[in-house]
Simulated scan of single mutants.
Amino acid sequence: MLAAYAARIDPDDPVRGLEVGERPEPECPSGWTTVTVRAVSLNHHDLWSLRGVGLSASQLPMILGCDAAGIDEDGNEVVVHSVISDPEWRGDETLDPRRSLLSERYQGTFAERVVVPRRNLVPKPASLSFEEAACMPTSWLTAYRMLFTQSGLRPGDTVLVQGAGGGVSTALVVLAKATGHRVWVTSRSAAKRKRAVEELGADAAFEPGTRLPERVDAVMETVGAATWGHSLRALRPGGTLVVSGATSGANPPAELNRVFFLQLRVVGSTMGTRDELVGLLSLCERAGLRPVIDDVLPLTEIGKGLAALAAGKVFGKIVATV
């Protein structure tokens, strides 16, 4: 079958490690099922894998990809939940110490077919296209958990989204606005700031590090070192900083004096559960929410999409069709 896979590890130029070609059909263990893939979406996780973060040379070749929407063995349209937990685990899958994502321990979704545990399939709403549904399991699910499970926000609160333009940040803006929050964003790009306000509905957009008109109730942080200090300074006393990524570096100054003196909450957030994915899809269907899709490519051109993602030339999600 046709697949896009990590053939080599290259920390400096990750896309060079990508190949698109024929791979063996996946074997389906007991309790798992095969999905015929219609669309996938690209994530920074795929670039980290090509750099060798969480993926070793001994595991290669590894089919990349966490996200997929397609058809199950019974002909149902489904969305794949990519968090694979231990079969004996009960409760929040993201807390399972033995969890993994597709394309880490198990072959990923950038292929004509992928095998997953049966419990990892969620019905695709008829109102979402395969391309739109493929954006949900990583970026949009991460945003959903940050806002509705981890932040403690209430409708009417003000939230700052750092680094508007990426898949998670655009999802954060759309979801927060749809549920009654005031949303501010930052971006180095004037064009992205403009689009965040005019297309996504953000209430205001600022350059990174700008002093805000007032302090906010929560900050959604996916950038890391480059925006960490600003995120802490932007919070009101007792506010919450929700962290789900660190694309600019993972070791910023802690600034603990500010954290304890202002009684700030710093909360980590990783992916989301199957139940949260069900809730996200239901919200999108009821509220008519749709992901921002920057580009749609055939699977054979997925390297072009990963290169654009690595260069930061993306607003929303890049999708590949199979």
Score class of each variant (00 low, 15 high):
Ala287Ile: 05
Pro298Lys: 03
Val314Trp: 02
Ala311Gln: 12
Val296Gln: 06
Lys313Asn: 13
Val314Glu: 01
Leu309Ala: 13
Leu297Tyr: 04
Leu306Asp: 13
Arg290Thr: 08
Pro291Thr: 10
Gly316Asn: 01
Val319Lys: 04
Asp295Gly: 05
Val296Glu: 06
Asp295Leu: 14
Lys317Met: 07
Gly303Tyr: 15
Ala307Gln: 09
Leu306Lys: 12
Phe315Leu: 11
Thr300Gln: 12
Pro298Leu: 05
Val292Gly: 00
Val296Asn: 03
Ala320Glu: 09
Lys313His: 11
Pro291Asp: 11
Ala310Val: 11
Leu289Gly: 09
Gly305Cys: 12
Leu297Val: 13
Glu301Ala: 11
Arg290Asn: 04
Pro298Gln: 03
Gly288Asn: 08
Lys313Pro: 00
Ile318Ala: 03
Ala307Phe: 00
Arg286Trp: 10
Ala307Trp: 00
Gly316Phe: 02
Asp294Asn: 11
Val319Asp: 08
Gly303His: 14
Lys317Arg: 14
Thr300Trp: 12
Ala310Asn: 15
Ala307Ser: 09
Gly312Trp: 05
Val296Ile: 14
Val296Thr: 13
Val292Phe: 01
Gly305Ile: 12
Ile302Thr: 10
Ala308Asn: 06
Leu297Cys: 04
Pro291Leu: 08
Ile293Asn: 02
Ile293Ala: 08
Ala311Trp: 04
Asp294Val: 05
Arg290Tyr: 08
Ile293Phe: 04
Ile302Gly: 04
Lys304Ile: 07
Ala310Met: 13
Leu299Gly: 10
Ile318Tyr: 03
Ile302Met: 11
Thr300Lys: 09
Ala310Gln: 15
Arg290Val: 10
Pro298Cys: 07
Ala287Asn: 10
Ala311Lys: 12
Val296Phe: 06
Lys317Cys: 01
Pro298Ile: 04
Lys313Tyr: 02
Arg286Met: 11
Leu289Pro: 14
Asp294Ser: 11
Arg286Asp: 14
Val296His: 04
Leu306Val: 09
Ile293Thr: 07
Asp295Phe: 02
Gly303Cys: 13
Ala310Glu: 15
Pro291Trp: 01
Gly305Pro: 15
Leu289Lys: 00
Ile302Gln: 07
Asp295His: 09
Ala308Phe: 01
Ile318Cys: 06
Gly312Lys: 05
Val314Asp: 01
Ala310Trp: 09
Ala287His: 11
Gly316Tyr: 01
Gly288Met: 08
Arg286Ile: 11
Ala308Thr: 03
Ala307Lys: 05
Gly316Gln: 00
Ala311Met: 06
Ala311Ile: 05
Leu297Met: 01
Val292Met: 04
Phe315His: 04
Gly316Leu: 00
Leu299Glu: 12
Val314Ala: 02
Pro298Thr: 05
Asp294Arg: 01
Thr300Met: 03
Thr300Gly: 11
Gly305Lys: 06
Pro291Lys: 04
Lys317Ser: 06
Phe315Met: 07
Val296Cys: 09
Arg290Gln: 09
Val296Tyr: 05
Val314Ser: 01
Leu297Gly: 03
Gly303Ser: 14
Ile293Ser: 05
Gly305Thr: 11
Ala308Ser: 13
Ile293Cys: 08
Ile302Cys: 09
Ala310Phe: 07
Ile318His: 02
Gly316Ser: 02
Phe315Ile: 06
Gly312Phe: 06
Ala308Pro: 00
Ile318Met: 08
Lys304Gly: 03
Leu289Cys: 07
Leu289Arg: 00
Ile293Lys: 02
